[in-house]
Design a protein around this nucleic acid. Structure first.
Length: 785
DNA sequence: GCTTCGCATGGAA
DNA sequence: GTTCCATGCGAAG
């Protein structure tokens, strides 16, 4: 900490600062760099990177000094230190913090082998290889591959670090789109500290490039053999290609340890190709950031993640920072002011003046900007990725590896044709075009941007790469924005509460897998639950339970077994239980009047409008609600399908088979396991609520009867209020639908506690005051359509 | 009064 | 408890 603070006064970017140490002292840097610093056209980034990079070797002692404190910090520890000691630490950290499950032997061996052989057989790699394969090389790796400074005996280490590079570097993944590098070497040599061979970089850097495209120029180089040697192994294995396609984080485990996942660059190979434009470029994804409202706002300040800024941008010692030339996705160059503000003994890095650029890209809050470096030019490239669909984005924070960007083909606007050196990062066009602005933040931002953003500052590239203003999609915005989205979109779309959903969902047709936790079986469905069609459960005079469902086409009502689970779209043709009435031509079994006495059919609802998804869903929810309530009601006490809303008849999971009493195949009454305790607790809660509710309803009903003069209520559907319903048609406790004697026993036991079957360990009792299954069902019953 | 700048604040990680 | 960072807010222009 103290060390850090002390450095704080200098340059936040240790890497850079180190380079500054070498090239010029920090004080000088302030004057020379900050004020007069102008990145050489097209070279600025490489310039500093090279300096930095090469300074590393000479600055090792200095770095190691820093390491003392940096190393304690997961994010900073490995950034810079090429030393062996640190590598060990890296390894340890790597093993400890990441990929433990998937990196059995660690990457180091692999890398060593790779390095030793000049190329690597990826087949030997463990699953994490896909992450760690990325490689950095080239002259501009200062930030990313400090191991390059060490060769000779450290070659090994360097190679290893190539895979598990320092934190800073780790984030950067160099993709060798095409190896060529006279320029690299040239640049390198120009930037090399004295004594370093001109081909140092190529000789020392781990060359796990991802090479996409044919090699063109490496043969021309004096060091081409070396490069080829390294590049040769860069042929991407299938897995890795898949990874590229999937847009996994372009970083190894080390990198992941350095930056928060949300900053992990997740650029697809297509994006990289577009970014690189010219296939001879090596793209090094650095980091990405989802634009916040303020980032995308008119303030024009893009807050940079501190670690990213310190890792990949030049070190700045003065708050005013320095101008940073960044190429946008269209190839236009922008000059931002990279600076920082003191903030709580730390720094807050920002890029100022980004508004025009962001506007030109038509970016909004929730969109993601990516920072990459193109070598050998060393240009900083700011790509972008419009927010994609919600689900995909939601994966990002926690499951970055699985983000699957749309295929490049979809990016009609960022086709290969227009992919100049600055081609835009391809964006998921399809998704983009389909999703609308929905979050308030996004809308606000969008509106802001729309006002002035459309003035395209650049050429065709921009327009081609920029989505139309209409293109707005759900996005993974920050937590807060996400919250907005949830509140304003999803909730609206759902139109039901989660409690309702919970009670109404049916298990997917695909059989679940059984997961045993603590000796208890739990069903685990791979597919989402489904919604069924609304039906009404009744018990006829003979005490037989059945349900009524309305045909989607003819609106006739059909009697079905109680355990029938109907799809949301159900027609007479689907009536497999009653062949005589499996056609819309068949007459209804009983007339509607009779039916209305049993079920609360609204007069006008007989012919409900079809084709309305909402209604269908609602129907399905009603049905599920009925089922759910039946599970807790006495009317259909032993209906196996109601044991658990999400479970099918015959389900033998702990929830379904385990009555709170403890009777069951697995648990005794006195069982005090968590499951049983939870079940009991929940049961008690539900029972209390139910009794309370019954009482209040009784009172209300009594008073109502007095007022209305004992107007007879229609027979409540079975799915409605469980207790009253049960009284109307309380069937024998025997369950005609039960799967077996055991189930029967269980069910019979449950009948004494109607709600038992409803027990769901996943629900939140505390929230059921407002939305108990029963109340939900009651609501549905009262308002069936 | 508006915009920009610089810092402070506070929620979240 | 610390750090990060999104955003607020006052001062200055």
């Amino acid at each position: 900490m103290c060390a850090r603070k002390s450095h704080n006064a200098m340059a936040p970017n240790h890497i850079w600062s180190s380079s500054m140490h070498m090239a010029q002292n920090v004080a000088d840097r302030k004057d020379n760099f900050v004020k007069t610093w102008r990145p050489p056209a097209g070279q600025f980034s490489s310039q500093w990177r090279q300096n930095n990079m090469w300074s590393m070797s000479t600055m090792q002692s200095d770095l190691q000094q820093r390491l003392a404190y940096e190393f304690d910090r997961p994010s900073g520890s490995e950034k810079l230190l090429p030393g062996r000691t640190f590598i060990h630490a890296h390894e340890k950290k790597f093993d400890d913090m990441h990929d433990k499950p998937t990196t059995p032997a660690g990457m180091n061996h692999i890398i060593r082998d790779r390095y030793a052989n000049g190329h690597t057989q990826h087949s030997s790699l463990d699953p994490t290889y896909a992450y760690t394969l990325y490689h950095r090389e080239g002259p501009n790796q200062s930030l990313h591959d400090h191991s390059h400074q060490h060769h000779g005996e450290n070659d090994h280490l360097s190679a290893r670090k190539g895979v598990t590079p320092d934190p800073c570097s780790s984030v950067s993944t160099t993709f060798k789109l095409d190896s060529h590098h006279p320029s690299i070497l040239k640049d390198d040599s120009s930037a090399l500290p004295a004594g370093l061979p001109s081909n140092f970089s190529s000789a020392n850097g781990p060359k796990d490039h991802i090479r996409i495209g044919p090699t063109q120029q490496q043969q021309q180089m004096a060091s081409s053999s070396l490069q080829k040697q390294f590049y040769s192994h860069s042929v991407i294995d299938n897995d890795f290609q898949a990874q590229l396609r999937n847009g996994r984080p372009r970083m190894d485990a080390k990198a992941r340890s350095q930056l928060l996942p949300r900053y992990w660059p997740r650029i697809t190979d297509q994006e990289l190709q577009h970014l690189s434009g010219d296939s001879n470029s090596v793209i090094t994804p650095l980091f990405e950031k989802m634009l916040s409202a303020s980032d995308a706002g008119r303030i024009g300040r893009l807050v940079l993640p501190k670690k990213c800024a310190e890792a990949y941008f030049p070190a700045i010692s003065q708050a005013e920072g320095l101008p940073l030339k960044v190429q946008d996705a269209t190839g236009k160059e922008w000059v931002f002011q990279f600076r920082f503000w003191p903030n709580n003994n730390s720094r807050m890095y920002v890029l100022e003046g980004v508004t025009p650029c962001i506007q030109s890209m038509q970016l909004q809050a929730g969109d993601t900007v990516t920072f990459s470096r193109i070598d050998p030019e060393g240009k900083l490239v700011m790509g972008f990725r419009k927010a994609t669909n919600l689900s995909a984005e939601q994966d990002q924070p926690t499951k970055p590896a699985n983000v699957v960007p749309p295929p490049p083909e979809a990016n009609s606007k960022v086709s290969a044709a227009d992919s100049g050196p600055s081609a835009a990062v391809p964006r998921p066009i399809k998704v983009n075009t389909e999703i609308k602005i929905s979050s308030p933040v996004e809308q606000a931002t969008a509106s802001k941007i729309d006002k002035g953003a459309l003035a395209q500052k650049e050429g065709p590239g921009t327009s081609s790469s920029s989505p139309g203003p209409v293109k707005r999609k759900a996005t993974s915005v920050g937590p807060k924005i996400k919250r907005f989205r949830m509140d304003n979109e999803e909730s609206m779309e759902l139109k039901i509460t989660w409690e309702e959903a919970q009670e109404l969902l049916r298990p997917p047709p695909k059989a679940p897998s059984i997961v045993i936790v603590d000796g208890h079986e739990f069903e685990e469905y791979e597919e989402p639950p489904i919604l069924g069609r609304r039906t009404y459960f009744v018990t006829d005079q003979s005490g037989e339970n059945h349900q009524w469902a309305q045909c989607e086409d003819c609106s006739k009502w059909r009697k079905l077994p109680v355990d029938a689970l109907l799809p949301s779209k159900w027609t007479c043709a689907d009536n497999k239980w009653d062949p005589e009435r499996s056609s819309c031509d068949s007459a209804q079994e009983i007339n509607t009047e009779e039916l209305t006495e049993m079920i609360p059919i609204k007069p006008g609802a007989a012919k409900k409008s079809k084709g309305t998804d909402n209604i269908d869903v609602s129907d399905g929810l009603d049905t599920l609600a009925n089922l759910a309530i039946l599970g807790e009601g006495e009317s259909l006490p032993s209906q196996p399908t109601t044991r658990h809303p999400r479970h099918r008849p015959g389900c033998s999971c702990i929830v379904c088979i385990q009555p709170p009493s403890g009777k069951g195949p697995k648990h005794k009454q006195t069982c005090t396991c968590n499951v049983c305790m939870t079940v009991r607790r929940r049961f008690r809660t539900l029972m209390m609520r139910r009794e309370k509710r019954q009482q209040s309803e009784k009172d209300v009903g009594a008073s109502r009867r007095k007022e209305v003069g004992q107007s007879s209520e229609p027979v409540p559907q079975a799915g409605s209020d469980a207790p009253p319903t049960n009284t109307t048609s309380s069937p024998p406790k025997t369950d005609t639908n039960s799967e077996g004697p055991d189930d029967m026993a269980v069910d019979n036991k449950r009948t004494s506690s109607p709600i038992k079957n409803q027990i769901d360990l996943n629900s939140q009792p505390e929230r059921e005051d407002e939305h108990s299954p029963k109340s939900d069902a009651t609501r549905l019953r009262d308002n069936p359509t």
